[in-house]
Computed example of a mutant assay.
Amino acid sequence: MRICIYGAGAIGGYLGAQLSLAGQDVTLIARGPHLKAMQEHGVRLLIDGEERVAHPVCTDDPSQVGPQDYVIVTLKAHSVPHIVEPMQSLFGPDTAVVMATNGLPWWYFYELEGPWRDRRLESLDPGGVQWDGIGPERVIGCVVYAASEVSEPGVIRHLKYNRFTLGEPSGEKTERVRRLARAFIEAGFRAPVRGIRNEMWVKLWGNVAFNPISALTQETVDTIARDPDTRAVAKTMMLEGQAVAEALGARFSIDIERRINGIEAVGAHRTSMLQDLDKGRPMEIDALVTAVQEMGRMVDVPTPTIDVILALVRQRARVAGAYPQD
């Protein structure tokens, strides 16, 4: 299979190296010193106490790559609209696009049974750039449970977890999603095929609360979960998010206290939103929080605590230059 990974940083580089080593025809789209190092020395993957070196094609020019069987997008959600145009050269008539981004996706309502079928989310896809330019019919959903880092240009260090849950928006176990899952499994990943929207909500359930609270308090997730005051705020936000999700037909397979305890057990983890704030990088506020607020208003479910925390974290991000002013 021809697989292009668009955004070959920590997660994309980890995926690409393993798939390449398993014999897939992989191309990585990257940039800067990281790209140069991968072009010169291959992708060095530090995993399970050993170093593995993969040599996929590495480039910053998608137009030189040609049509792919799968394009796996591992950028942050707010970066995707900017790559829709250059992605076009990667598309053939049957190319699938795997959206391995955090938070709720722009295609969430595609073919979703009910009154909101094919509704577009302005907070995630202003002007419908992704809906029109990628097309929801190409999409395979992906929920990432993996942690890795770019320890230096060209070097990916795998930290923990290796699960990439896959699913069609329709819920069908099509040949294209089963074929991709087999390739992931052969490369050493866990890749269950499931109802992807429920999976997305379970992961988002923690992110909608713990990410913005961590950015506002500068604390790690274990501290937030242990402190009675911040735990209570997080739980209230999660209950609001659950009510929105269930109004849209999603179901949660675990208890909220168990979910919070699981987050606490992660330990002194600095959320991605806090890390981005510290470095002045754009923060994933819209995919993790704003979209929940937008959906709540659609289904007439109030989200008062989410609204307050969202307003505060937006202002904090704007002051840091990590969120658009307009």
Rank of each mutant, 00 (worst) to 15 (best):
G249K: 06
I196E: 06
T236P: 00
L248P: 00
Q88N: 01
Q88C: 04
L159Q: 13
V193T: 01
S272P: 06
L112I: 05
G16S: 07
I306F: 12
A146F: 09
V139R: 04
L112G: 02
D60V: 11
I3W: 04
A183G: 07
A146I: 03
I3M: 12
P302Q: 08
L90S: 00
V43A: 06
Q39N: 11
V289Y: 00
I224T: 05
S20Y: 00
V97P: 00
W106T: 11
W205T: 03
T236S: 12
E50N: 10
R258G: 11
R163P: 00
P62S: 14
K173W: 06
K279P: 01
V143M: 08
P304S: 13
V221P: 03
P282F: 09
A37K: 09
H34W: 09
I72A: 10
F210S: 01
V177P: 02
Y110R: 10
I140V: 13
L45P: 03
Y145A: 12
E51Q: 14
P282Y: 09
V73P: 06
E137L: 08
V177W: 01
I309F: 01
F164R: 01
Q315C: 14
R179M: 13
E264H: 14
F184K: 02
V244E: 05
V292H: 05
V71K: 02
A8F: 04
M99T: 14
I196M: 13
P228H: 12
G171Y: 03
K279M: 07
T174P: 02
M273S: 05
S151T: 15
V129E: 11
G114I: 12
M283K: 04
A247G: 13
C4S: 14
I256Q: 00
L90T: 00
D222F: 08
A30Q: 09
G188A: 12
